[in-house]
Design a protein around this nucleic acid. Structure first.
Length: 693
DNA sequence: TCGCCTCGAGTTCC
DNA sequence: CTCGAGGCGA
């Protein structure tokens, strides 16, 4: 190492800390993401020690991105620090009937192109109502435990799980260099009841259900509190792994059990839908006798090779589903119906309820969705209604018990309750919208909320309350204003609830987003029909936001040729159709939007949007699949193409680089020939995939 | 034109 | 999480 080892001046120290943060964070990333350390452990330790030394000498110079705040290997974690999962922790798709379970099996078989006779096995196990945990074992030793969080970033609970006896610190027998076990932390029913009794006697707050008790007990800053709570753990899968020493889900779970971690005793394999239904029924019958609460049965494709082919949709694997038990229901009174105005102007009726306990939580609000839903249920203020929590989460009204009693029907407003503008449903649309647009304060603040929300810019410390407060002050009207809040520092400091420190934190969080992800920025603008996925696709295609704008403007320009070209370019993007093109065009036609856009791009500087993909000869090319594919479904082929950095498009155009044609291909094959585009068959495509590794 | 799938936009409680 | 609607294959 060439770093000076004596204590430097303050300026030098600040500089060195910055470089150390960069180096150590990069090394952590290389170590965790690629399982391929960039530097030796000794060098790494030296950097970490130097960082700690400088931070000790200059505590006021500790950086927000300091590696000491994070989890690296050998870096001790601060309590409940954040942890980025190398492999996302997914949620599961749900099935609420045997029929839906059958559809899942059919869907999987279709995706894998399995014929009638071909066998496909599944595993099934009880789904514990606890909280998901990821346990990272390196060479068999537990180095980190993290909660699920939002799936990408969770909380570090390594210190806390040391007090959970089910979680071994050292795996027994041979273990891979890296293996992340995933499972559920839970509290047994009896232990939950005893804990609540103790809490009550001590005058502490009690927990609504075992799940909340487990969550509250695990996520303790003081790990010693966790020690007094009887938590348990059950493994159900895995995440990042340097190797997976089994070829089936079932065998791998047995291996995890052999390593010393508990696995459900009700894990079984089933070869058919009938077998899965039978196992579901058996677990359902045993439900009340189990020591812990369960909310369904998880079904997974047993073959790991098949799992890999199936891959993932947005947030869940295609190869697993949760067959949920019927939701618990409750009865209560609808005390009022309020109208909320969303960022698109949508008027949403919200039912205010007499508080009622459903599935372990007290529900007081429920969405009634729209005018049609109110009419369908025939609900009026004062009615008795039946409530359930859909998927055990979102409350919904399932039935109205007072249909026959004379009461005036609910009159859905024809004016916006926030700005008084007319509110109406467009031709053929169900939703009633406020036509006030920019003059509607509700729409404006909702748009700002969307802009700073997770998924968009994700600015911490800028919540609903703050946005409304600053909006009312006239400090915050458009997204770009956020980046000028620093000029109001003196005005903000001293307002109620704002101290020097909190203003500082907010401004720091804002400054951290000066180079935002282009796709998140675009998503944050809230252009209709342009959500997170479409934003990503658009950015992938155009690399920069000005490029996107230029093409959108060309698409509706007066020059007919340029217009067609721009439109064709947009329509060539998978998932972009006429409605999305029109929405984009309308956005840029509105002068106010253009002003907001330009203002914002003067304040922030999103780097070029370039997605890292695997090297392959089709990288950056547009591929069209046509005809029948023999060994895989079209979905799978497209997913494959994207992994190779190619864009799978639906139609052949001058932008198409390659056509993969199976038997039965028609017009698209002719178009390809006319445009002189190379055509290959499925076997040749498979070779391209194989060559990319 | 139909039907399937994916995406967008709204939503609860802790 | 659910719903409606857009996109796209058949």
């Amino acid at each position: 190492m060439t770093e000076p080892q004596s204590l430097p001046t303050e300026a030098e120290a600040a500089n060195e800390l910055m470089r150390l943060a960069r180096k150590i964070n990069r090394a952590n990333k290389a170590y965790h993401l690629n399982d391929r350390p960039e530097m030796s452990d000794a060098d790494y330790d030296a950097l970490v020690r130097r960082n700690a030394e400088l931070e000790a000498a200059f505590p006021h110079l500790v950086r927000p991105d300091s590696p000491s705040n994070k989890v690296g290997h050998e870096v001790s974690a601060s309590p409940l620090g954040k942890v980025t999962h190398d492999v996302r922790m997914m949620s599961l798709d749900n099935a609420f009937s045997d029929e839906e379970l059958g559809e899942f099996v059919a869907r999987v078989r279709r995706f894998l192109s399995l014929g009638e006779g071909a066998e496909l096995a599944f595993t099934a196990e009880d789904k514990i109502d606890g909280l998901s945990l990821s346990l990272r074992y390196e060479h068999g030793r537990l180095v980190r435990a993290a909660t699920r969080g939002d799936g990408q970033v969770g909380e570090d609970v390594t210190a806390n799980v040391a007090y959970i006896p089910d979680i071994v610190q050292q795996l027994q027998g041979d273990a891979p260099a890296l293996f992340e076990v995933r499972g559920e932390v839970y509290m047994e029913r009896a232990a939950f009841a005893a804990l609540n009794e103790r809490q009550e006697q001590a005058g502490d707050k009690t927990f609504a259900n075992p799940r909340n008790a487990a969550a509250g007990s695990l996520r303790q800053k003081d790990a010693k509190v966790t020690a007094e709570r009887p938590l348990r753990f059950l493994a159900h899968g895995w995440g990042a792994a340097s190797e997976v020493p089994a070829s089936s889900q079932y065998a791998m779970m047995q291996q995890i059990a052999a390593w010393g971690l508990p696995v459900s005793p009700r894990l079984a394999t089933c070869a058919s839908v009938e077998g899965l239904v039978a196992h579901y029924n058996a677990i359902g019958a045993a439900r009340s006798t189990l020591p812990y609460e369960i909310d369904g049965v998880v079904v997974k494709v047993d073959s790991l090779a098949a799992q890999e082919r199936l891959g993932f949709v947005a947030k869940a694997p295609r190869w697993a589903i949760a067959r949920k038990f019927p939701a618990e229901r409750a009865e209560t009174t609808l005390e009022a119906i309020d109208i909320q105005v969303g960022r698109t102007g949508k008027l949403t009726p919200v039912g205010r309820l007499a508080p009622v306990l459903v599935g372990g939580v007290t529900v007081t609000n429920v969405t009634l969705h729209n005018r049609d839903e109110i009419a369908r249920l025939g609900v009026r203020v004062g009615d008795r209604v039946v409530l359930q929590r859909a998927g055990d989460v979102i409350p919904q009204v399932v039935e109205n018990l007072t249909r026959e009693v004379e009461r005036p029907a609910f009159a859905f407003p024809d004016h916006c309750p926030e700005c008084g503008s007319e509110a109406l449903a467009e031709e053929g649309e169900v939703d009633v919208r406020c036509t006030g647009g920019l003059i509607c304060p509700a729409q404006r603040t909702e748009r700002l909320k969307h802009f700073v929300s997770r998924g968009a810019l994700d600015i911490e410390g800028l919540g609903e309350k703050t946005i409304i407060e600053f909006f009312q002050q006239g400090w915050l009207e458009n997204p770009a204003d956020i980046f000028r809040l620093h000029r109001r520092r003196d005005e903000i400091v001293g307002r109620e609830g704002w101290q020097d420190k909190s203003v500082e934190n907010l401004l720091t969080a804002i400054e951290a987003k000066r180079q935002p992800d282009a796709a998140k920025l675009l998503f944050g603008l809230g252009i209709r029909h342009v959500g997170a996925v479409t934003s990503r696709d658009l950015c992938k295609h155009f690399v920069t936001l000005p490029n996107l704008r230029a093409v959108v403007e060309a698409a509706r320009g007066h020059d007919a040729d340029a217009g067609q070209d721009g439109a064709a370019q947009l329509l060539g993007i998978d998932g972009v159709g006429p409605v999305v093109v029109q929405a984009l065009g309308e956005f840029f036609r509105e002068p106010h939007n253009v002003a907001v856009w330009e203002d914002l791009l003067n304040e922030v500087n999103p780097p070029d949007y370039i997605v890292e993909t695997r090297e392959s000869e089709v990288a950056g090319k547009t591929v069209v699949f046509t005809g029948k594919l023999e060994t895989m479904s079209r979905d799978e082929a497209k997913a494959q193409a994207e992994r190779l950095g190619a864009k799978a498009s639906g139609s052949v155009s001058s932008k198409t680089d390659l056509v993969v044609a199976g038997p039965g291909a028609g017009t698209k094959l002719k178009q390809a020939a006319a445009l002189n585009i190379p055509v290959i068959d499925e076997a040749e495509w498979a070779q391209i995939v194989a060559r990319a590794g």
